[in-house]
């Protein structure tokens, strides 16, 4: 019971902090740090679904988010004469549907490969998509892309304002995160974990491994697309540069640094990344930024394959172990709870 209560308390504390955060910090911290972390976290979360539960590491998540961003611009308001301005709910639905479809296509192409080959093939898709966007002027508006993309105003609330936009990203992030925890305990989620651990066994248990993997890619495409809509609203613009190799790899770094095995890790990684990105500039010259990120990446991966959340979990476990050692022997109530905790995480 104690472990459970501790976990509930930690989640409640986190909820209170993120809910009141914009009320106590300046606009820069709300928007550039808070909202940006949350939306990168959503995109990275789509990778944690694939990698953490499915064992498939995809580098196409930023491309999918970008595709949804482009769709938001094309099927919504933008400052070019390209596109079809739909009412915003339809814009968002179209963008997310296209992102989901893109995810399914990436899945269908890469699903027979594993490990490094899956990385390479999804990287090729991401680069190919970025190059295509750069060269296509009829839909993607080539090198310039789209500017003047704006979030809607609903019921008098303008979501282009920092605080409303922060709460919008927070809402999307919370739903996506909660859903992913839920997903891990659904038949689909458990089958995906089974496939991650032993695809051959899953086949002889009656599962269609290929189709399940493609469906997982589609679901992750849906989450990435939601992040992509927020991404284009946040920047107000999208161009091929936003989806080329660098941002593609940034998502992988966020995921790995935060911890791919845990849904919350996506957001931990995103906060770390956005903080570094914003403040490293003050410490070192901008062109050294990648070196710093690379070093940070290396340090985290070397010390904890499960990323920052892995380090936190180990610390917690250590603390709990110390507490347990002080309790009389035979007090074994935590063991099944730990088993439950493990199967959930």
């Amino acid at each position: 019971m104690r472990v459970c209560a501790g976990r509930t308390a930690a989640w409640l504390a986190l909820a209170v902090v993120v809910a009141f955060y914009p009320l106590v910090v300046p606009g820069f911290w709300t928007y550039q740090i808070g909202a940006q972390s949350l939306l990168f976290g959503v995109i990275a979360l789509s990778l944690n679904l694939l990698a953490g539960y499915g064992g498939m590491v995809s580098l196409a998540q930023m491309a999918i988010a970008g595709a949804a961003g482009y769709a938001t611009a094309y099927f919504g308001v933008n400052s070019t004469d390209l596109g079809i301005a739909l009412p915003w709910p339809l814009t968002v639905l179209t963008a997310i549907a296209l992102g989901t479809l893109f995810g399914a296509v990436v899945g269908a192409i890469s699903v027979r490969t594993r490990g490094i080959y899956c990385l390479m093939i999804t990287l090729a898709i991401a680069v190919g998509f970025s190059l295509f966007a750069r060269q296509n002027y009829s839909v993607f508006n080539g090198f310039n892309g789209f500017a003047g993309v704006r979030a809607p105003a609903v019921a008098g609330i303008d979501f282009n304002e920092p605080v409303p936009f922060y709460y919008l990203t927070l809402g999307v992030a919370a739903v996506a995160l909660g859903w992913l925890y839920h997903f891990s305990r659904t038949p689909f989620g458990m089958a995906l974990q089974g496939i991650r651990d032993n695809p051959r066994r899953m086949r002889t248990l009656g599962f269609d491994v290929i189709r399940l993997r493609i469906a997982a890619f589609a679901l992750s495409g849906l989450i990435a697309a939601a992040g992509g809509v927020l991404f284009v609203w946040y920047n107000g613009r999208i161009s091929p540069g936003a989806i080329d190799v660098q941002p593609t790899i940034d998502i992988l770094i966020i995921s790995v640094v935060g911890g791919m095995a845990s849904p919350l890790g996506a957001f931990v990684g995103a906060v770390a990344f956005v903080l570094l990105q914003n403040f490293a500039i003050d410490l070192i010259s901008p062109d050294r930024f990648n070196t710093l990120i690379g070093l940070a990446f290396l340090v985290v991966v070397l010390f904890s394959p499960e990323g920052l959340t892995g380090i936190a979990q180990r610390l917690m476990r250590g603390l709990r172990g110390a507490v347990r050692a002080e309790r009389p022997p035979g007090d074994r109530e935590t063991s099944t709870e730990e088993a439950t905790a493990r199967r959930i995480s």
Partner: peptide, 13 residues
């Protein structure tokens, strides 16, 4: 998981 393998609803969310 084994039970789901031979029953419908393998993609259930």
């Amino acid at each position: 998981i084994a039970l789901r393998g031979v029953r419908p609803g393998r993609f259930s969310l």
